[in-house]
């Protein structure tokens, strides 16, 4: 349930554990993870392959149910909200390593998919919002092009526009610069950071790309399912 009197804490995890397999084949991926991400924060989560980054992101993104511990996302208690996971997902803007745009829709139509999902039934309004968002990612002129007609970097920016057009409270990004060159990657991260700072949402970005570390308010490192936090300017620890 939403609690509008709560402080703007977007992610709050306590003793969050997760495993794959059963019996002798159990593989513990997350071990008593603690994490807090507030509105207006741009947090980077780094760690080697297999450290549990993607699993953590999928739990926060309401893509799989939690097993042990406590997790609140946008003030939804993930232990209680299994029936409405798709509603939690709608609070979140996802940016994936692959753009996964629908090739048979134009850039604008891809962005509009998010608004249609949310019941925005005013076609003119949807079009206007989508074009606004594409303008923010520098692709207004490409609004009527299909993904195969765009560069890889442009497609990724369209995917970001699709993720952010509904002004999500939380942005989750999984290796958003992995398929981009340095310049495009920097543009994408700057865009995400600008969204965080101007719209007041929060972002948790999983990445190996050290070139973008300097954009972060804090960098968390995860290894063998354990998060090692860093102190931040505000004083509180993001990783517990």
């Amino acid at each position: 349930m939403m609690d509008f009197s709560s402080p703007p804490c977007l992610i709050e995890a306590e003793n969050l554990s997760f495993h794959y397999g059963e019996g002798d084949l159990v593989q513990q991926v997350l071990k008593n993870v603690g994490l807090r991400v507030m509105s207006g924060e741009f947090i980077i989560l780094a760690g080697p392959s297999g450290s549990g980054k993607s699993t953590l992101l999928s739990l926060i993104g309401a893509l799989r149910p939690i097993q042990k511990g406590k997790l609140q996302v946008c003030q939804y208690d993930m232990g209680q909200s299994k029936a409405s996971m798709h509603l939690i997902r709608r609070q979140i803007g996802y940016v994936f390593q692959q753009h996964n745009l629908l090739n048979f829709l134009t850039a604008r139509q891809n962005v509009e998919m998010t608004l249609e999902m949310l019941g925005d039934d005013d076609e003119f309004s949807r079009k206007e919002k989508s074009l606004d968002m594409l303008d923010k990612v520098g692709l207004k002129k490409e609004a009527n092009k299909y993904p195969p007609e765009l560069s890889v970097g442009q497609r990724q920016r369209v995917a970001i526009a699709r993720s952010l057009v509904h002004q999500p409270r939380l942005i989750l990004a999984d290796e958003p610069t992995a398929s981009l060159d340095g310049k495009s990657g920097a543009q994408v991260v700057e865009l995400l950071r600008d969204m965080v700072k101007t719209a007041g949402c929060g972002a948790l970005v999983v990445t190996h790309d050290e070139r973008i570390f300097h954009y972060a308010d804090a960098i968390l490192r995860i290894e063998d399912g354990v998060i090692y936090g860093e102190a931040r300017e505000g004083g509180h620890n993001v990783g517990v």
Binding site: M2, S84, L87, R90, Q91, L102, F104, L105, Q109, L115, E116, M117, L118, G119, D120, D121, D122, S125, K129, D132, M133, H166, Q167, P168, A199
Partner: peptide, 28 residues
Amino acid sequence: MRRQNSSPNTPTAIPAGYAFRLAWRQLS
């Protein structure tokens, strides 16, 4: 940016017409 007409945490049934349009675009 302006807010949506409906909140993301409000359950909304996506009109069948949108699904039909997506199907048509996909097929054609």
